[in-house]
Amino acid sequence: MTYQFKKILLICSGGLTTGCFVEKLNETIQFIKSKCLFPGNWIEKIEEVSKKYEIILLTPQVSYYCALLQNKFKNQVVLKIPTRIFVTYDAIKLIDYLKINNN
């Protein structure tokens, strides 16, 4: 089973927990043989890095920016990572969540 996502950015406030989740996501993607990468970056850098990505995922720490960013980045999908998925680093559930919510 392969997933068609290619350019997905995780946005966070500080990076420590997100860095661990990004690592887990990328390991999972290699395991399921998908050709996408999940980089992470800080909310302060979203303006300069967001244009390269089709999907922007917001960690729970910055999820309150979701409506603002959905209005600003109308050509991209902006989603909140569900807290339960994020705190458990459940990469498979996040990939499934993306399949369902990637309009």
Rank of each mutant, 00 (worst) to 15 (best):
Gln70Cys: 11
Thr18Arg: 07
Arg84Lys: 08
Tyr97Ala: 02
Ile8Val: 15
Cys36Asn: 10
Ser13Tyr: 15
Ala91Trp: 02
Leu68Thr: 14
Thr17Leu: 05
Gln61Ala: 06
Ile11Pro: 01
Ile92Trp: 13
Pro39Phe: 04
Leu16Lys: 10
Cys12Pro: 02
Lys80His: 05
Val49Phe: 12
Glu48His: 09
Cys66Met: 11
Pro39Glu: 06
Leu58Tyr: 04
Tyr53Lys: 02
Leu16Asp: 02
Ser50Lys: 07
Ile85Gln: 04
Lys93Thr: 00
Thr2Asn: 13
Lys51Leu: 07
Ile43Glu: 13
Lys51Thr: 11
Ile46Ala: 08
Gly14Arg: 10
Thr18Ser: 15
Glu48Gln: 12
Ile81Arg: 03
Cys66Gln: 14
Val87Gln: 04
Leu9Cys: 04
Leu98Thr: 06
Ala67Val: 14
Gly40Trp: 10
Ile95Leu: 14
Ile29Cys: 07
Ile56Met: 04
Leu37Arg: 05
Asp96Asn: 13
Ile95Lys: 00
Leu98Lys: 04
Ile100Arg: 10
Ile92Cys: 03
Lys35Ala: 15
Asp90Glu: 04
Leu79His: 05
Ser50Arg: 05
Lys24Val: 09
Tyr65Val: 05
Ile32Ala: 02
Ile85Pro: 01
Asp90Gln: 09
Glu27Gly: 14
Gln61Arg: 05
Leu57His: 06
Ile100Thr: 11
Lys72Ile: 15
Asn75Lys: 14
Phe31Gln: 13
Val78Gly: 01
Lys6Met: 03
Ser13Gln: 15
Ala67Lys: 14
Leu94Ser: 01
Tyr97Asn: 02
Val22Lys: 07
Phe31His: 13
Leu57Ile: 06
Ala67Asp: 15
Thr59Trp: 04
Tyr53Leu: 04
Lys80Leu: 01
Pro82Lys: 10
Ser34Asp: 08
Lys51Met: 05
Lys52His: 08
Gln70Lys: 15
Asn41Trp: 07
Cys36Val: 00
Ile100Ser: 02
Lys72Glu: 11
Ser50Leu: 05
Cys66Ala: 12
Lys93Met: 09
Arg84Thr: 02
Asn103Trp: 13
Pro60Tyr: 05
Tyr65Leu: 06
Ile92Arg: 13
Asn41Ala: 10
Thr88Asp: 11
Arg84Pro: 00
Leu94Trp: 01
Leu69Cys: 07
Asn102Val: 09
Leu94Gly: 01
Gly15Lys: 08
Ile46Leu: 10
Ile100Val: 14
Cys66Glu: 15
Lys99Phe: 04
Phe5Cys: 01
Ala67Ser: 14
Pro60Lys: 03
Leu9His: 03
Gly15Leu: 04
Leu69Tyr: 11
Trp42Cys: 00
